[in-house]
Computed example of a mutant assay.
Amino acid sequence: MVTNYSDILSTAKTIAIIGCSANKYRTSYHIASYLKENGYRIIPVNPKYEEVLGIPCYDEMTDIPEKYTVDIVNIFRNSTHTADMVRQIIDWTQKTGQEPVIWTQLDVSSAEAEELAEKAGLAYVKNECMMVQHERIS
């Protein structure tokens, strides 16, 4: 588990957001908008939308084109789905050779997801709000 959020957020350029919503009243939309406004490239991942914030949205992590370097994958899903999301991320890393940090928002982490990430050698942030952590270092 990673706790040095400053290093992660200060070096990251691209953040894939699993569960990103186009509904402006959802937390994932608000945080995606904040991250975009603060200079990050965001890549929305949600099968419900074709685009979010004017950016193409992908159905799942494995649909993100290999041309993108993803530094962080931020998960906004119910904790019952987090292990499956980590499996998708692992499949994507095996396909691309990339090793993004897996970041789980508040109450999103699960023991199984954390264990899968550790076994795959991927850094894992547990139950932290990315926006709050970014505001702390800004």
Score class of each variant (00 low, 15 high):
1 M>V: 07
2 V>I: 14
2 V>K: 06
3 T>F: 12
3 T>Q: 13
5 Y>A: 00
7 D>Q: 13
7 D>T: 15
7 D>V: 05
8 I>A: 06
8 I>V: 11
9 L>R: 02
9 L>F: 03
10 S>I: 12
12 A>K: 03
14 T>G: 09
14 T>V: 12
14 T>L: 09
19 G>S: 08
20 C>A: 14
21 S>Y: 05
21 S>F: 02
21 S>L: 03
27 T>K: 10
28 S>D: 09
29 Y>E: 03
31 I>R: 03
32 A>I: 07
33 S>E: 14
35 L>T: 02
35 L>A: 00
36 K>N: 10
37 E>P: 11
39 G>D: 04
39 G>I: 01
41 R>T: 12
41 R>G: 06
42 I>R: 00
44 P>M: 04
45 V>G: 01
45 V>C: 02
48 K>I: 08
49 Y>A: 06
49 Y>S: 04
50 E>N: 15
50 E>V: 14
51 E>C: 09
53 L>I: 06
54 G>L: 06
55 I>Q: 03
55 I>A: 02
55 I>G: 05
56 P>T: 00
56 P>L: 04
57 C>M: 06
58 Y>F: 14
58 Y>S: 02
63 D>N: 15
63 D>I: 07
66 E>K: 15
66 E>P: 08
69 T>P: 05
70 V>D: 03
71 D>R: 06
72 I>K: 03
77 R>C: 00
78 N>G: 03
78 N>M: 04
78 N>A: 03
79 S>L: 10
81 H>R: 14
81 H>D: 12
82 T>Q: 09
84 D>C: 11
85 M>T: 13
86 V>S: 09
86 V>M: 07
90 I>H: 08
90 I>G: 08
91 D>A: 14
91 D>T: 13
92 W>H: 04
92 W>I: 05
92 W>P: 00
93 T>M: 12
94 Q>H: 14
94 Q>W: 10
95 K>C: 09
97 G>I: 11
98 Q>N: 08
98 Q>L: 07
98 Q>G: 01
101 V>L: 06
103 W>G: 00
103 W>T: 10
108 V>I: 04
109 S>C: 08
110 S>L: 00
111 A>I: 14
111 A>T: 15
111 A>K: 14
112 E>C: 11
113 A>N: 02
114 E>S: 11
114 E>C: 12
116 L>C: 10
116 L>S: 08
117 A>I: 09
118 E>R: 15
121 G>V: 13
121 G>F: 10
122 L>D: 00
122 L>E: 01
123 A>F: 06
124 Y>N: 00
125 V>E: 13
125 V>I: 15
128 E>M: 02
128 E>C: 00
129 C>L: 07
129 C>H: 05
129 C>N: 04
131 M>K: 01
133 Q>G: 06
133 Q>W: 13
134 H>Q: 07
135 E>W: 04
135 E>T: 05
136 R>L: 12
136 R>C: 10
137 I>C: 02
137 I>G: 00
137 I>R: 06
138 S>G: 13
